[in-house]
């Protein structure tokens, strides 16, 4: 089937252009640095070694903050990787004319878009598994801490990457590479800002601010998925203990997660529809 030919081609291009190698090496460097930072903050902290029930809880909270920090960085990297690797795949091949020899073969245009989606989704899955898996593993081994709801958290981060991928493909089916990049990053920027407005609004008990944040999340639900992911591993006990820059005050609802999933599907459908109809 044509889809798998394109998926294989997408993987091969990433490997051939040393994208996979660069992501792997820099990912390992990231994990090395994160592990070092983790080790030092545990070793230098007097609380880390002191016995007693209260200290165990405090230690847990510190570990949770460090884990959230790591995953926050991984999430940011994944968002960037998603947009940067896929931004040129449709727009670039359309503008160069490379696509012409491909779509005049017995392959349907939707197979091209879907094949690329699966290819990038596969690579992003591997990337996320390496990076988030590495961070979680390091916290577990070095800090002896395992967060609750880990799978749910990772699934939400994964969903966020796929969401951005669909939006980027939809943009690429429509516009130039540069405009597509501006669209994807710009939308995520709105979502990011909306998330913070919602957080601060919630702490300041401003309903208006919370609503503005929610509207921004409806425009682009990517950051809402991260905030839900962060909330999942935060756990009720730790939430009650105090605040950190990574704790979530205003939690995006399951309905928002559902909305984001529908958004993803719609963006992918738009990418397929637009690419299927446009002149190449």
């Amino acid at each position: 089937m044509g889809v798998w030919v394109i998926t294989g081609l997408t993987f091969r291009e990433a490997a051939r252009r040393k994208i996979l190698l660069a992501a792997l090496l820099l990912g390992l460097a990231f994990l090395g640095l994160y592990g070092l930072g983790l080790h030092l903050s545990i070793a230098e902290s007097p609380l880390g070694r002191a016995p007693g029930r209260e200290n165990v809880l405090l230690r847990r909270q510190i570990m949770n903050v460090l884990l959230s920090l790591g995953l926050y960085a991984v999430n940011w990297l994944t968002v960037m990787m998603t947009v940067l690797t896929s931004v040129d795949t449709l727009a670039g091949e359309i503008s160069s004319g490379t696509i012409q020899a491909v779509v005049t073969k017995p392959i349907r245009r939707w197979e091209v878009v879907l094949g690329k989606f699966i290819g990038f989704a596969g690579m992003l899955t591997l990337y996320l598994l390496l990076m988030a898996g590495g961070v979680v593993l390091e916290v577990r081994v070095l800090g002896g801490y395992a967060p609750p709801n880990l799978l749910r958290c990772l699934a939400l981060m994964w969903l966020e990457a796929l969401l951005l991928l669909s939006v980027t493909l939809a943009g690429g089916a429509w516009m130039s590479t540069l405009a597509t990049g501006v669209l994807a990053v710009g939308l995520h920027g709105l979502a990011f800002l909306g998330g913070w407005i919602e957080e601060f609004g919630s702490m300041a008990q401003s309903r208006t601010a919370v609503n503005i944040g929610i509207i921004a999340s409806l425009v682009m639900p990517s950051e809402a998925l991260w905030r839900r992911a962060a909330f999942e591993i935060q756990g009720p006990a730790i939430g009650a203990f105090g605040r950190s820059p990574f704790s979530i005050a205003s939690v995006p609802s399951p309905a928002m997660v559902l909305y984001a999933t529908a958004y993803l599907a719609l963006a992918l459908a738009l990418a397929i529809r637009r690419f299927g109809r446009r002149d190449l």
């Binding site: 004319g97 490379t98 012409q100 020899a101």
Partner: peptide, 11 residues
């Protein structure tokens, strides 16, 4: 089909 600008996946 041989396209006019024969641009292909050059990698």
């Amino acid at each position: 089909f041989l396209p006019e600008h024969f641009r292909f996946h050059d990698w």
